[in-house]
Simulated assay, not measured.
Amino acid sequence: MSSTEPEWFKSSYSGTQGDNCVEVAIMPHAVHVRDSKDRDGGQLTLSPAAWADFVAYARAVEL
């Protein structure tokens, strides 16, 4: 794998049953998010600042 290819990892909140899994790949200038059950489907791409804002909000709300 080259250094330009994203390295995906599952969210720590993903269950062990394989349902509702989100995968994230953090790159220098973007954060990519995808559904682990549909890896060839669409991806959400965020700026690192937008991702940081989302994570801070999610921690505060703790859904």
Rank of each mutant, 00 (worst) to 15 (best):
V55E: 12
G42F: 02
A30D: 04
R34F: 00
D40F: 06
A60I: 00
T16R: 09
R34D: 00
A50W: 01
V24Y: 01
M27F: 05
P48R: 05
A30C: 09
S36K: 04
A56G: 15
P48G: 04
M27E: 14
K10Q: 12
S47P: 08
T45Q: 06
G42E: 08
S12P: 04
D40I: 03
A25H: 09
D53C: 07
C21G: 09
H32W: 09
Q43K: 11
H29K: 13
S3W: 07
S3K: 11
M1R: 12
C21P: 08
V22S: 03
W8S: 03
V33G: 01
V55P: 04
E7I: 15
G18D: 04
D40N: 14
A60Q: 13
D53K: 08
S2L: 11
E62G: 05
R59F: 06
N20R: 09
V55Q: 08
M1F: 07
I26M: 10
S14K: 03
K37S: 08
H32T: 00
T45P: 00
S14V: 04
D53V: 04
M1P: 09
S12E: 04
S47D: 11
E62S: 13
Q43L: 02
S14L: 03
R39F: 03
N20K: 07
A49E: 15
A25N: 10
S12Q: 09
L44D: 03
E7M: 12
L46W: 01
E23V: 08
D38E: 10
F9P: 00
A60N: 10
H29R: 14
L63A: 13
T45C: 05
H32M: 14
L46D: 01
